[in-house]
Design a binder for these strands. Structure first.
Length: 917
RNA sequence: AGGACUGUAGCUCAGUGGUAGAGCACUACCUUGACACGGUAGGGGUCAGGGGUUCGAAACCCCUCAGUCCUACCA
């Protein structure tokens, strides 16, 4: 076996291991043997996209859970795939065309689509490689693209079924128009941002009188399309005008004054509202109520159209605004201008201001779908985490609007509907029709629109499993188990999958939704190219290794607020990987004469027989702690606290296993091959690292696999850690204490309960405290760490004294002492430093070295600190309320601590007296 | 306008009723036979502020302040 290098080099193992796993088919779920399944569908990234931190977070969390379940014996399936991303991709290709001076309209639909497919072939797939670099154990044999054949069939089937169910309809309505990408958008794709604007007060002359009705508006240019003015029916200022008309300035149009209590708030502005049904959602509804004309003055190109007076035609909305205001002012119709904050609707994709425009579009009637989706969460069939996000989900589902699903794009699933030139009827079909189903005419043409990208992603858990065919996958893996994604697409995606999944199968698409928050730049702001705060996960993998990044992201999985990226922490986890690497390297160096057969016989004798008598104190202690850590990590994973699971294992590996056990084991390992202590330590090392690497694997798959394969393991174990059994609790006793565990220590319960193990844990705690006290004394008196000194221990209590004798060798070794002696009070030299732990006085004799006065002061400080703690405890224990109401175990703990403090105070007091204080 | 979340060490974050924690950064010492991406010993916090509940509050309740975000819109 080649010796491991002293610095862990991720590049040397990651690709090799990933390809090995993949080529051996280890990412595929195990064959169906009736075992439970665990299914996760990866949120499909844009096909031409690059991995960003959000993807990395998603993949880390999902992979951790998939690997955990796979090791736990479930048939785990994690489904990959990519999204055609309608607008995003089309915009990119159009930009590319523009470089050649071409437009999509110029080259035509067919050529444009061909070009987009080419673009997809050229730029697609990069993100798959990047997911692989992260270690994602996705089943690539089931890869899917939202516009491949299977997906397209699913989309078409879904559209037709919804249409047959009366849940898809076509209507002439006001929609949000993005003039940059020339398409309608759903409400969700419009973001609102607050900007400083103005409130213009415009005077409209009332027909047949000298009166002028003053309206207030933030969009004066739309007055060209006004078809009414609304006032509140109870408003005494205007009541008499209802039913009369105003003459619009600039256009001269005669429009009615209507009374409308819904639109008008008497206290806002002037109390009179101009009504422009074609360009405002509320006005559109008001227009319907009063049968007002819909006069479109803004065209799909974002400019004023032919319905506007000639002077304004062709102007952009902004230019038209300036021109209209100037014209009104010239006409004496501008009464007042005041500053006003308003919210602008902006396209999520292109960033341009969206115009509400009336047009013919396809809609999904959402109310019946939402009712089922709402019920499924209310009755717990699907659980949303963090819990408080459930309220957002409820609120959105309860106030849901119909979903505009048609887009005037070319890249996407074309609406499977045909318009008849003869009878104007619409034919919707699973197969392309050759004639109108209403009149039989052959003069039919397919609808030009494509479907919202989210329509196909909304079907994703179904599509990836082969729906609408009744595939074996669908039957075995649906409903899926976990949907992990960013909370920013709760409505866009999760809600739609819930609605469509329930509608088409009657079952929820997933049982648990786990929502994570956004990864922000190191400056705490949203990552953006313009801000220059973008962190590229691939660069981090290059620099620190995939496991370091994964470990970091795992510890952030619980963050609800926003994850402020910290490179220093990634680096910290890189250091952790290195620590682990070297710890196993150390173990390996000491296991050269301890092969699989030796390990098997050791386990048979120690683990299987449950006989720990041959094990040293430290061996027993670390075995117990490793088991406890594995159990704890399993529980934390089950409760979706991946962050705490990662933390727990980090702490154990570094501060218990490396800091104490490996140091202590060196004492046992000094012996020769025949030495039973050496053998005990070897068996312990092999077993504990086996446990640790299994526990760690879901979070850090590469390094754990690489190291595990270097350790001896009994015959019969597989060759890959990723398929090894996770050390999880299999059975528990009546009180809930673990009995048996999967993995290398089946009888974990008996081992943990063993009295010899319990005693060893007490001893180890004492060893740690005594060693720490002696190190502190050495540092305090500025002795070089290498200087071997004699330490004296004084303990009156026979039990304590016996323990000191038991741990003598270990303490000498760990504290680098020359010797350790148990002495009587009289033997303690006057000139010495001392500390008290657990009723044992630790004395460092310092003849000629110690400044008695200074040492008195130091001990005085210790006494003061102990005194304070003792006083506060004593007060608490004297409090009748505390005695009466606190739980007995808390009282007992405090009493024990107080007794300990009193012994320590007494000892320190005598020490100080000895020093002449 | 409603609503959610957050405020703990210089920075990034744990800690949900029982004496304030980790990583990084900082100070001093150490090339100790796995690891300097390391070791040992340290310094550093009125747990945003105020009130309340409780024997006991960083944690539970109320208010204030600050930050982040979501939803809906007043023309």
């Amino acid at each position: 076996m080649e010796p491991l290098r002293t610095v862990y080099d991720p590049k040397a193992v990651e690709t090799r291991l990933y390809e090995g796993w993949r080529d051996a088919g280890q990412f595929k779920p195990a064959a169906d043997a009736g075992q439970p399944t665990f299914t996760v569908v990866l949120p499909p990234p844009n096909v031409t996209g690059r991995l960003h931190m959000g993807h990395a977070l998603t993949a880390t969390i999902e992979d951790a859970y998939v690997r955990w379940h796979r090791m736990a014996g479930d048939a785990a399936l994690w489904l990959p795939g990519t999204d055609h991303a309608g607008i995003a991709t089309q915009v990119m290709v159009e930009r590319d065309l523009a470089k050649e001076g071409k437009t999509r309209q110029g080259i035509g639909r067919e050529a444009f689509l061909a070009r987009t497919w080419q673009w997809k072939e050229r730029h697609g797939g990069i993100i798959d490689t990047q997911h692989a670099a992260l270690g994602a154990s996705l089943d690539w044999s089931r890869d899917r693209f939202t516009m491949d054949e299977v997906s397209s069939r699913a989309v078409r089937e879904a559209f037709c079924r919804l249409h047959e169910d009366g849940l898809i309809y076509r209507a002439y309505r006001l929609i949000n128009w993005d003039h940059a990408s020339q398409t309608a958008l759903s409400d969700l794709e419009v973001e609102h941002k607050e900007v400083d604007g103005f409130l213009w007060h415009l005077a409209y002359p009332v027909e047949g009188s000298d009166e002028r009705l003053v309206v207030a508006t933030t969009r004066p240019e739309t007055m060209l399309g006004d078809s009414g003015v609304a006032v509140h029916p109870d408003d005494p200022r205007y009541q008499h005008l209802i039913g009369r008309h105003v003459i619009l300035p600039l256009t001269g149009r005669r429009v009615p004054i209507v009374g409308d209590a819904i639109l008008v708030d008497m206290t806002f502005g002037t109390g009179a509202v101009k009504v422009t049904p074609a360009h405002d959602f509320n006005d559109f509804k008001t227009g319907k109520r009063h049968e007002l004309a819909v006069i479109t003055v803004i065209g799909f190109d974002g400019n004023m159209n032919a319905n506007a007076p000639e002077a304004f035609r062709g102007l952009s909305v902004a230019a038209a605004r300036t021109a209209v205001v100037a014209a009104l002012e010239a006409a004496g119709a501008l009464v007042k201008v005041e500053p006003h904050k308003l919210n602008l609707g902006v396209s999520q994709r292109t960033g341009v201001v969206c115009e509400p425009l009336p047009s013919d579009q396809w809609f999904v009637s959402t109310a019946p779908l939402a009712a089922k989706a709402l019920a499924a969460v209310k009755d717990g069939r699907t659980r949303i985490l963090p819990e408080h996000r459930t309220a957002d989900y409820y609120r959105w589902m309860e106030s849901i609007q119909d979903w505009c699903i048609s887009r005037q794009l070319w890249w996407g699933h074309r609406v499977p509907a045909w318009h008849c030139a003869a009878c104007k009827g619409i034919t919707v079909g699973r197969e392309d029709p050759s004639a109108c189903q209403h009149c039989g005419s052959a003069a039919i043409a397919q609808d030009n629109d494509v479907l919202d990208t989210w329509f196909s992603s909304g079907l994703w858990p179904l599509t990836t499993l082969g729906w609408p065919e009744k595939t074996a996958d669908l039957q075995r893996f649906y409903p899926t188990d976990l949907m992990e994604t960013g909370w920013d697409i709760l409505f866009f995606w999760v809600a739609r999958m819930m609605m469509l999944g329930l509608h088409f199968t009657g079952e929820v698409p997933f049982k648990t939704v786990f929502l994570h928050s956004m990864v922000l730049g190191e400056d705490g702001k949203k990552m953006s190219k313009t801000r220059g705060n973008v962190v590229d996960p691939i660069e981090l993998i290059d620099q620190y290794g995939a496991d370091s990044l994964r470990f970091y992201l795992a510890t952030m999985a619980g963050q609800d607020q926003g994850i402020i990226f910290s490179r220093a922490r990634v680096e910290g986890y890189r250091n952790f990987c290195n620590k682990l690497w070297n710890a196993v390297r150390f173990a390996g160096m000491n296991l050269e004469d301890f092969d699989a057969a030796e390990l098997a016989s050791w386990r048979a004798a120690v683990i299987d027989r449950g006989d720990v008598s041959a094990l040293a104190t430290a061996d027993r202690w670390i075995l117990a702690r490793a088991l406890e850590t594995a159990i704890q990590v399993g529980e934390l994973l089950a409760s979706y606290r991946l962050d705490l699971a990662a933390h727990a294992i980090y702490q154990f590996v570094w501060y218990e296993l490396c800091d104490w056990y490996l140091e202590a084991a060196k004492l046992s390992l000094r012996g020769d091959a025949a030495d039973p202590l050496r053998r005990a330590a070897q068996g312990t090392l092999a077993t504990v690292f086996d446990l640790v690497l299994r526990t760690l694997h879901p979070i850090t798959p590469f390094i754990s696999e690489a190291l595990w394969q270097t350790l001896p393991r009994p015959a019969g174990e597989g060759d890959s850690l990723m398929l090894a059994a996770y050390p999880r609790v299999l059975t528990r006793d009546a009180a809930g204490a673990p009995l048996t565990m999967a993995g290398p220590v089946p009888g974990a319960g008996a081992l943990l309960a063993d009295s010899g193990v319990q005693a060893a844990r007490e001893d180890m705690a004492a060893i740690i405290e005594v060693v720490t006290a002696t190190r502190m004394l050495k540092a305090e008196f500025k002795l070089p760490p290498a200087q071997r000194v004699e330490i004296l221990l004084r303990a009156e209590d026979p039990a304590a004294q016996a323990r000191v004798l038991r741990m003598q060798a270990c303490v000498v070794h760990l504290a680098r002492l020359q010797s350790l002696r148990v002495v009587e009070a009289a033997e303690v030299p006057r000139e010495s430093g001392s500390a008290v732990v657990r009723g044992v006085e630790v004395v460092l004799p310092l003849i000629g070295l110690v400044d008695l006065a200074a040492e008195r002061v130091r001990i005085g400080k210790d006494l003061e600190k102990l005194g304070k703690e003792g006083d506060s405890l004593a007060r608490k224990l004297d409090n009748a309320g505390f005695r009466a109401k606190a739980p007995p175990e808390v009282i007992a703990k405090d009493e024990a601590r107080l007794a300990e403090i009193r012994v320590d105070i007494e000892k320190l007091g005598r020490t100080r007296a000895r020093l002449g204080g």
